[in-house]
Structures are given as C-alpha cells and as structure tokens.
Design a protein around this nucleic acid. Sequence first.
DNA 1: AATATTTTTTAGCCTAGGCTAAAAATTTAT
DNA 2: ATAAATTTTTAGCCTAGGCTAAAAAATATT
Lengths: 222, 222
Amino acid sequence: MATSFAEENYLKIIYRLSESTLEDISTNAVAELTQTKAASVTDMLRKLAEKGWVNYQKYQGVRLTNEGEKIALSIVRKHRLWEVFLVDKMGFNWDEVHDIAEQLEHIESEALINKLDEFLDFPKTDPHGDPIPNKEGILPELGYLHLSELKENKACILMGVAKDSAVFLQLLTRLNLSLGAKLSVKEINPFDRSISLSINENAPVFISHEVAKNILVKLTKD
Amino acid sequence: MATSFAEENYLKIIYRLSESTLEDISTNAVAELTQTKAASVTDMLRKLAEKGWVNYQKYQGVRLTNEGEKIALSIVRKHRLWEVFLVDKMGFNWDEVHDIAEQLEHIESEALINKLDEFLDFPKTDPHGDPIPNKEGILPELGYLHLSELKENKACILMGVAKDSAVFLQLLTRLNLSLGAKLSVKEINPFDRSISLSINENAPVFISHEVAKNILVKLTKD
DNA sequence: AATATTTTTTAGCCTAGGCTAAAAATTTAT
DNA sequence: ATAAATTTTTAGCCTAGGCTAAAAAATATT
C-alpha cells in the first residue's frame, strides 16, 4: 500500500520515540515532534491503525506493528543514507543536513536508494553515528554507551550523538567534540552530575549531564 | 513567496509547453501534461495569476510572467542536474531517470543544488541533451537543429532529444542512436517524409518523420 | 474518596487540490 | 450567418490533513 508524505512522517516519529522507551507512545509526544496539535494526531493515529501500521487504542498510546516498523525503517534508511551523501559527497557539515534529509527521505525509488548505498560504500552509520538499516531493514548492532553512564577515569571514543538538532551539534563542534575524538572522564560533579572531560588529551573542559546523555561512546581498553 | 509541489508542477509544465510555441498555452494542453482535468487547471491558473506567476485571462490561455519563468527555470535546473547525477553517478540509463528526477526537482535547498552542480562539474546539458540553466537562470544557447529540418546528404552529430518519454528513448537505444552518434541523411521519402539514415557509417536504417522531429543535431563541416 | 489538573478525544470547521456535470464561450463547418 | 462541435469555465462536491473549542477520560493532589 502506498504511503503519503504525512503518513511516513508519523511512522518515522513514532519509531524514533520507540527507540528510547519500551512504553507506548503518547499522543502528545507525537504531536510535539510532528509540530501539529494533539487533535490532529488522534485523527492520524486512527487512520494508521486502520491501515495496520500501528496498534492504537483510545487513551492508551500507540506502538508500531511489524508492518509499520518496516515502513519506518525504510524511511530511516533513506534519511541516514542521504545524510551520508550530503556530508561525504556534497561537503555539508553535520549540523546542516537534517532538514534537507527530511525532504530527501520521501523520494520513492528502491533502485535509487540501493545504488546510493553502493555509491557511498555501504556505510554502517550516518554522520551523527546513528546506525543505517540495510536493504532488509536490519540495523547493525553498535552497542554504544551514553557518556553520562561512565564512571570517573574511564576513557572512550566518541562514536555518535543521540540528538541531531543544529544547536546541539554546533555546541559539540565548538568544544571540539567530533566523531572519533578520544575522551576521558576526569571528574563527575556530584551536585549536578556535570563532567570534567578531557578531549584528545587536552586540558579538561566542563560539560553538563544533559550534554553527556546525548553523546554515544565506546570504551577503550587502557 | 513559497511554492507548493503542485504549483511548481504547473509552472514547469507551462514552461515546457512555451518552449515549443510562441502562442498562449491552452487549458487543455496543461491538463494533459499535469494528468488532471481541465476544470482543475482553470482553478489553478486563477491562483497562479493571483500570485503574479502567470498572465491569464478566461478563455485566452496562459503565459508565464518573468517571475513565473524564474521559478520554472529553477525547477528545470534542479530536474536536469538531478538527471545528470542519476546517470553519471548512480549508473541509471537515460530512459530510467525522468520519474525520479520529477520527485527530486522539488527538494528545496539552494545550497544543495549549487553543490550538486559543482560535484557534477557544471554540466551544460542533461543526459538527453537538454540545456541546464545556471544559478542565475540563464540557459546556455546550444543552437541545435531538429533532424527533420535537414536536407538530403547532410551529415551531423546527435546532440539531444526533444522528448524524454521512456518508450521513445528505448527506441533510440535499439537503433543505436545515442548522444554523439554521427548521422548522415541519405534520402528523404517525399511521401511520408521518412528518412533513410546512416548511423556511425553503417548501412542506413529508416526512421519516421515523427522520430526525426524529436532528434536534435548539430551540422558537421564535411 | 473527592476534587483538580492534565491528557486525549470529539465535533465542527478550514484550505489545497482534486473531481463531475452543466453552462458558457469560442471555434469550425455548413 | 447559423448551427454544430469543441473548449473552457462555473458550480458544487470530495478527501487529506490540518485547526480550535468543548467534552470526556485518565492521572495527580488534597
């Protein structure tokens, strides 16, 4: 069955919200991300349920069905591959690509997206470190931790971010935090959980717990 | 002023129709290319006139204003650049790219399209030989002739096509007619104006006047 | 347990962009 | 110069996907 622009957006957003929780997704949460009103969301959820893409019961929130998740994953795949294209081939910065990819993700051509995948050398992650589903909709398992979960004196490498708003990414850039940076947690302030962090062996800087929560890392042995 | 998907399509189609005639464009002609009904076209023409993008008087047909032409040229630029991308970088054939480019032409990002232009080395023509407007909306002057205009015994090179439907392009491919082919008009049949044509010095084949009309060439000296 | 607050849904409305059927204008043919 | 045929417009209707305001359900507070 064909999916409209709006339907694809809803499915993608429900998918995103599901990534970070096991609970059902609330109408309001969806409304916030789709930039629409709760009443409009209710309407659309009924329609999506009708088409078998979500399970939805009045007042109970919403979850994707397998079918719905398949569609969402194909949108996510397109979004992330286009982001790689925009950064690697077009020379955009990582904070500039979200809105353009938001449009490109709705281009309908299986053939194109698979050729693009090949052209980009089958990347596993997008410019923010987010995993790219393959043709079959399988996500590579990356097993990253949130920087905020680490104990003091742990060293790690910055592998991705859990949020890709332009302001957040620009903040990271200003702090010299880019993918691949070598990080070391020097101290955790017990009052506000802010972190004193050394970046690429330099003198430590402070970052808030909020920032640390949105940084994905993998531990290094030594 | 922002342009919707539908508005952009109408402007592009009116532009295309204007390319091949100096007369005003009829409602029916637009309806045919937009795949809608004449009544719907009438509605939209009123709206486009309201926005200052076309001159339109009831029953008198329609023409683009300068403003409208500027928008149309920016869509045409995007369409043709994406076609070059699809053929040169993604490896599609020239008869496969139209529908995908039809979607990509509506992606809104000045920055992206200019970077794409650069990435493709500022091509002057698309895979069908159609001229690509530059950033300022200026079309390169190519000065091609229609093969149907040539006299007997004239030699020329195939530079483009005036129609890009998949069936037409597939016919050309089957006849070995691709961009750059060396052509020579051996005979013109006075009955139906069909042409006996030698392609790359090979034994002549027959093509109809209708086909010849849609082939663009430039004359060679000898 | 009752009340207040928050969240979600319903009801009714709006706009963009389609459609059909009938009316009006234009063009062609007699 | 009429009549016939064709083209275009009008009128009224439809669907997708939004909205606001009011009602209903769920949740939180006293």
